[in-house]
Each structure stands twice: as structure tokens, then as C-alpha cells.
Write a protein that binds this DNA or RNA. Sequence first.
DNA 1: GAATTCATGTAACTTGTTACATGATTTA
DNA 2: TAAATCATGTAACAAGTTACATGAATTC
Lengths: 199, 199
Amino acid sequence: MVCLTNFSTTKGTLALSLPHAILGLLTYKPMSGYDVKTFFEKSIEHFWPAQLSQIYRELGTLEKRGCVNSHVEPQEGRPDKKVYNITEEGREELLHWLHESPKSLLAYARDETCLRMFFGSRVEPGEMIFQLKLLIREKQKTLQILGDIYESVKHAGYPTEELYWQLTIRKGLLIAAAEVQWAHECIAELEDIRRPRHE
Amino acid sequence: MVCLTNFSTTKGTLALSLPHAILGLLTYKPMSGYDVKTFFEKSIEHFWPAQLSQIYRELGTLEKRGCVNSHVEPQEGRPDKKVYNITEEGREELLHWLHESPKSLLAYARDETCLRMFFGSRVEPGEMIFQLKLLIREKQKTLQILGDIYESVKHAGYPTEELYWQLTIRKGLLIAAAEVQWAHECIAELEDIRRPRHE
DNA sequence: GAATTCATGTAACTTGTTACATGATTTA
DNA sequence: TAAATCATGTAACAAGTTACATGAATTC
């Protein structure tokens, strides 16, 4: 079996999620790089962002490794499409990855908001409160967007995936809600230590 | 002012959190690369992991840009230390970054757990349940570790930072708790669709 | 006697981001 | 007429990871 996770390093501790995300999409139907990006934008991008240029590069790598193959589809009035198809090797590789014990369980997530709060004493409490209020507004937008996607999944025409996609979105909703709650708690604490300027 | 965020790109949309994390630490006291890593391990690493080799590289870059300077301290029975100190330019750069509107508010976080759940239909419900139970165990460890750190902050000898550090940890606790809750919900849903093998 | 701690880094590589190039068609 | 959509990518760079090299002192 072609094993992406063992290709480049001897220990194989790399996450290598992007190629597997692409392989996963190609199990639904053959797609061009542009199609993959379009699909990403309404789903996977919310928990695994990827630039179009990165998708093209990964598709090239996957093809070299025999996980996908491609053919060019001429189109009228539009640029030709290079359509990628998953191979048997690609399917095996995807399953292998899905059955692995996820490394992400132990990995720490990078969180710039935490980093800013950690050094929060270096700026005025008012500045932190301002940024926390921005955070609340953005996370409420996220809650709205994910809520909409949650509903739209029911009519997306992928009945087998429906439950799994909804559970995925549910994680995003719970975390965004936790972040809003945290921000409110922080604001309350910081208001306490803030000295009012006019009194 | 030396502006790290405008050094390399014209748009300056990069997060560039690691150099600022290091600058932040150096406002507490002068440190060697090894000291920085040690400090990271009990705090920042939980929300911004960094390899020792990456820290050495960043310190070198920061020195070239005038944000830190260094001197070698000879030691007996131990290797010499190269101790870094933050400069006035470095302090300005840190404050500039702290006052910026954080880009991370709009950025999506990468979450491998979501990616696996998204493609969950490709494996047996039992496999997903197994992985979710692993997740619960790991996140409960995280809750324990962060809870301990939360308590230890009170006696760490950084009274000015105490509140901010605790608020930072609180975010980790709330998110880990949300993840545990999510995993329990998922298991309940997946148990429903799992066909019992012997009945 | 083996592993860990202390302490420095370099080199090679992978992964992610941004900018650039091209060009027709459609929509505002 | 300006912008967005469709469609391909390359090049350059930034950021993160892993492996390697060195070596004394301490702890298990």
C-alpha cells in the first residue's frame, strides 16, 4: 500500500491531513482542483483551510504517488478542466488514515487569542475588553453561519454523510459558543480591575 | 519602528505569533533559547507549540532585526549560555502587535478531529466510537493538567500576570470541556445507528 | 549503565501563504 | 466598465517539523 504518512519521514508523525481531505472528497465524485476548492469553501475550509494553490500542489503530489489519476475535459467557452479521480491505492490510503489513532488528540491547537490574553497585562484592560468584544461579534457570526450550514446539510443530497457532517458542524458550534462564554467571563473580570477615567 | 508584520509581505496578513510570544517572555527577564523553551513547556506550548530549533531560529531573526540583543554567559560544568535581552525596538514591536486587531478572529482553526468526523461514514460507527472514547480520555487529561496549572499560577511569583494567565487557562478548560461534551453526544448518536452484531 | 538535563545549533524537509500570470464569460 | 466566476498553475517565501551533531553532569 502507498502510505503517505510514511513517505517522507521515518517516524511518520506528521498529520498530513490535507491530502486525505482531498482523497475523501474524491470518493464522492471526480473533481478538478477548482471543484475541490469550491467544495472546501462551504465545508472543510471551516476546520481545515487550504489555498487553491496548495490544493493544486497536493493533487500533483497525490498523482505522482498513484493515489489519484487525471484526464483533461475540454469545455466550450470555458477553460479546460483537469479532472482527478481517486484510485484503489488512494482509497486504501484514505482508509488507512481514518483507522489510525489520530495524532491530533495529543497535539495542542494554536490559538492566537490565548497568546494575546497571556500577555494581556502589557496593554490596558480597556484594549483587551475591546478585542474581546470583537471576538464575541465574530464568533456570533460563526454561530450563525454554522447554524445555516447545519440546516442546509439536510437537503445537500448526501444522505449517507448527513449525520457525520452535522456532528462535525456541531463541534464548531459548541466551541464557538464556549469562546463567546469565555469572552463574556473575561470582560466581567477585566471591568473589575479597570479604573474608570472620569469619577 | 521595526514592524515584523510588514517586513516580509506587503499585505501583512501573517499571524507571526511566535516571535511575539518570545518577545513577550523576554519582557519578564533575559533568557537563553533553552530558557525560553523551558518556559514554553509549562505555559505557552499549550496554545502555541514550538520546537526548540524553531525558537533558536526566531531568536536569530529577532536579533538581526534589532528586537533583541545577546551576550554569552560562561558557566562552570555546563555549556555556555547565550542570553537574549529585549530592546526598546522589541518592546515597541510587541505593543504594536498587541494593539493590532487580531487576524485570528476571522481565521479558521485547523481541527483534525473534525476532518475525521466529516469522513466518518467511510468507516464503521464502532471505529468512530473508539476514537471518540480516546478523545474523551485525552481531553480529560488536558482538563486535569490545565486545572493544576491554574492553581500553580497563584504561587508562580508573577502577580501582575496572574489574572491574565488564569483567563488564558480558562479558555483551554472551557474548550476541552466542550470537546468532551461533543464526543459524548457523538457516541450517543452513533450508538443509535450501530447494528448490534449478536441479537 | 542508561536516560535525562543542560545547552548550542545546522540541514533538510514539509506545509502553508502570497503574489503573479493568463484569459474568456458572465453579472452588477 | 468594473468585478466576479471559471480554470489552470508557478515562484517565492514563511512557518513548522524532524533528524542530526556535540558533550559534560546528573539522576535512576
